[in-house]
C-alpha cells in the first residue's frame, strides 16, 4: 500500500472504525485512542498490506486492540460493572433508545459480531477472519445477540403492541 492509499484508507474507514469502537466501548475518548492505535499498527505494516484488503486488516487490528484494552481495563477497575446501563424499566425508550440499551446489555463478543455485521456489512466469513471466531460461533453469537435485543424490544408494548 502506498502512502496515498494509506491516506485514502484513513478517509474511507476512520469514521467506521471510530463508530465501531464507540458502540463497543461506550467512551469516545477511548474510541479515539483505539482508532489512532489501530492506524499506527497498520502504518507499521503498510508495505505488506494490500489496499483492497486494508479495511479488513484495519478492523482485525482494531478488534484485537479493543479486546486488549477491555481486558486490561477489566483487570484494573472492573470495567463492565461501570458500564452497566440503567434498568430498562426505568426509562421510556423509543426504538433507537431500546436498541442502544439492548446493545449495551450484550456480552462483548455478541456486540462485536452484530456491529460488524450491521454497521460494516461483513459476511460471516469476514467476521470470522476479523475476530478469530469460528463460522458457527459467529452465527450463534449473532443469533443470541438478535434474540436478546428482540426480547428487550418486545418488553416495550408501545413499540410492538400485542
Amino acid at each position: 500500500m502506498t502512502i496515498h492509499e494509506y491516506n485514502a484508507t484513513v478517509d474511507q474507514h476512520a469514521d467506521n472504525l471510530y463508530r465501531f469502537f464507540v458502540k463497543n466501548i461506550g467512551d469516545r475518548d477511548t474510541a479515539r485512542d483505539l482508532v489512532q492505535e489501530s492506524f499506527a499498527k497498520m502504518w507499521i505494516k503498510v508495505r505488506d498490506v494490500e489496499y483492497d484488503k486494508a479495511k479488513n486488516y484495519l478492523f482485525t487490528v482494531g478488534y484485537r486492540t479493543m479486546i486488549d484494552h477491555i481486558r486490561s481495563k477489566k483487570r484494573r477497575d472492573d470495567y463492565l460493572s461501570k458500564q452497566e446501563p440503567d434498568p430498562y424499566e426505568d426509562r421510556d425508550y423509543d426504538l433507537k433508545g431500546a436498541l442502544e440499551y439492548g446493545l449495551n446489555k450484550l456480552p462483548e463478543s455478541q456486540k462485536t459480531v452484530i456491529l460488524l455485521r450491521d454497521y460494516e456489512g461483513y459476511s460471516y466469513e469476514e467476521i470470522e477472519q476479523i475476530t478469530g471466531m469460528s463460522a458457527s460461533q459467529v452465527k450463534v453469537y449473532l443469533f443470541r445477540a438478535r434474540k436478546a435485543m428482540k426480547e428487550i424490544l418486545l418488553k416495550n408494548k408501545s413499540l410492538f403492541p400485542i
Binding site: 502512502i3 476512520a14 469514521d15 479515539r32 445477540a145 438478535r146 434474540k147
Partner: peptide, 27 residues
Amino acid sequence: RHYNAFAATRLDPDDRLSFPDKAGLKK
C-alpha cells in the same frame, strides 16, 4: 410480532459519529 421485533434489531450506523482528527492520522 416476534418477526417484526427481530427485524428491528438490524442496526443502522450512526452517521453523526465521525472521527474528529483524520488529518492527524494521515502521513
